[in-house]
């Protein structure tokens, strides 16, 4: 039931939003077509501007993963995290999540497939994937698009967001699903 309702909301959200914008624009006598073209041109330029930032991030992350450095880091962290109820299997996901959205989703899907969606690892991976964000992607792309080079405390706050989301996921899963 809940799955149906949530599914319906995410299916309808985009068309509803577009209808709202266009209807409201039409009612307010906005030249909707001209306005769309004008805004769209700006969007095109923004997308082009972020290419170097994306390439820089993608290369670094892929090299780190393919070389086996990520597994090494996960192995090094495993004993400490085991104390807090974090299974070693989800560590690569935890490390990958702030760096790359698509790699993290790939890892989460793999975990859910291997251990089953209703296993502890599968549930924890699901909650972790939903609860943290691709902080470095967001930082580089968002700041890159306006040419900001000094990020100040945004990096710390972003990592704090991931870390606290991660801790909260582990805590709640250990309480609900163990």
């Amino acid at each position: 039931m809940l799955a149906l309702v949530l599914g319906a909301v995410s299916r309808w959200a985009i068309p509803a939003m577009i209808c709202l914008f266009l209807l409201l624009g039409w009612l307010r006598r906005v030249p909707v077509y001209e306005a769309f073209i004008q805004g769209g041109a700006e969007g095109f330029m923004t997308a082009i501007r972020i290419i170097p930032y994306l390439v820089a991030m993608f290369v670094a992350i892929k090299v780190f993963r393919v070389s086996g450095a990520m597994e090494l880091l996960a192995h090094a962290c495993a004993p400490v995290l085991k104390l807090f109820g974090v299974p070693a299997e989800v560590l690569p996901l935890a490390i990958m999540r702030p760096l790359s959205g698509s790699s993290a989703l790939g890892l989460a899907t793999e975990l859910i497939k291997t251990y089953g969606p209703d296993s502890f690892v599968g549930r924890l991976a699901s909650v972790m994937q939903g609860s943290t964000d691709t902080t470095f992607f967001v930082l580089t792309v968002y700041f890159g698009s306006v040419g900001v080079r000094r990020f100040r405390h945004a990096v710390i706050l972003g990592l704090l967001a991931d870390l606290s989301g991660l801790c909260a996921s582990v805590w709640i899963c250990n309480h609900l699903f163990r």
Binding site: M17, F21, V30, G39, G40, E42, G43, A47
Partner: peptide
């Protein structure tokens, strides 16, 4: 990824401009 973003960015920035001019 950027090329895929171009379409989305153009679409949503266009929609946003409509929303902005409508006062939303």
């Amino acid at each position: 990824v950027c090329l895929e973003l171009i379409g989305l960015m153009t679409l949503w920035m266009g929609m946003l401009e409509v929303a902005r001019q409508a006062g939303l």
